[in-house]
Simulated assay, not measured.
Amino acid sequence: MRAAVLNSGRVFVRDDIAEPRPGAGQVLVRVKACGICGSDLHFARHGAEMLALGRQMSGLPFQADEVDLARDVHMGHEFAAEVLEVGPDTETDLSPGELVTSFPLLLAENGPAPIVYSNTVHGGYGERMLLSAPLVLPVPNGLPAHHAALTEPMAVGLHAVNLAAPTGEGAVVLGCGPVGLAVIAALRTRGVAPIVAADFSPARRRLAGRLGAHHVVDPAAETGWAAWRRVGGDRRLVVFEAVGVPGVLNDVLRHAPAGSQVVVVGVCMGDDVINPYFAVTKQLAVRFAFGYEPAEFAESLRAIADGDVDVAPLVTARVGLDDVPWAFDALGDPEEHCKIIVEP
Rank of each mutant, 00 (worst) to 15 (best):
F297H: 05
V11F: 07
D308V: 06
E78L: 14
A213H: 01
F43N: 06
E169D: 03
L107F: 02
I304V: 15
V156T: 09
L253F: 05
E169K: 00
H146I: 11
R318Y: 04
R204N: 04
Y277N: 15
R190F: 11
P166Y: 09
S8T: 14
Q63E: 14
L69V: 05
G212K: 03
H46R: 14
E66I: 07
G191S: 08
A258R: 11
S118G: 06
R236I: 10
L163V: 04
L106E: 05
L6C: 08
N7A: 14
R235T: 10
A289P: 01
G23I: 04
C176A: 14
L187E: 01
V248D: 04
H46F: 13
V245M: 11
A133E: 08
P325M: 08
A44Q: 13
K282Q: 07
T281I: 14
F103L: 15
E296P: 07
R188W: 06
A305G: 09
V100M: 02
L105V: 12
V13C: 11
P114R: 11
V267T: 13
A221M: 12
G157I: 00
A258H: 05
P194E: 00
G38K: 13
A203I: 06
V248E: 04
E109A: 15
V29E: 00
G232T: 02
Y277W: 13
R206F: 08
A3M: 11
L211G: 01
V172K: 01
G54F: 13
H77S: 05
P138I: 09
A220V: 14
A186C: 06
A171F: 03
G233C: 08
P138N: 10
G177N: 01
F62D: 05
V67C: 02
D65Q: 15
F79V: 06
H74D: 07
F278L: 07
R55H: 14
L105D: 02
I274T: 05
V67N: 02
V29F: 00
G126W: 00
F12L: 11
D16G: 01
L106S: 03
L135S: 00
F12M: 12
L284G: 06
G332D: 07
N119E: 06
E127F: 02
G9V: 14
Y277F: 14
L284D: 06
Q261R: 14
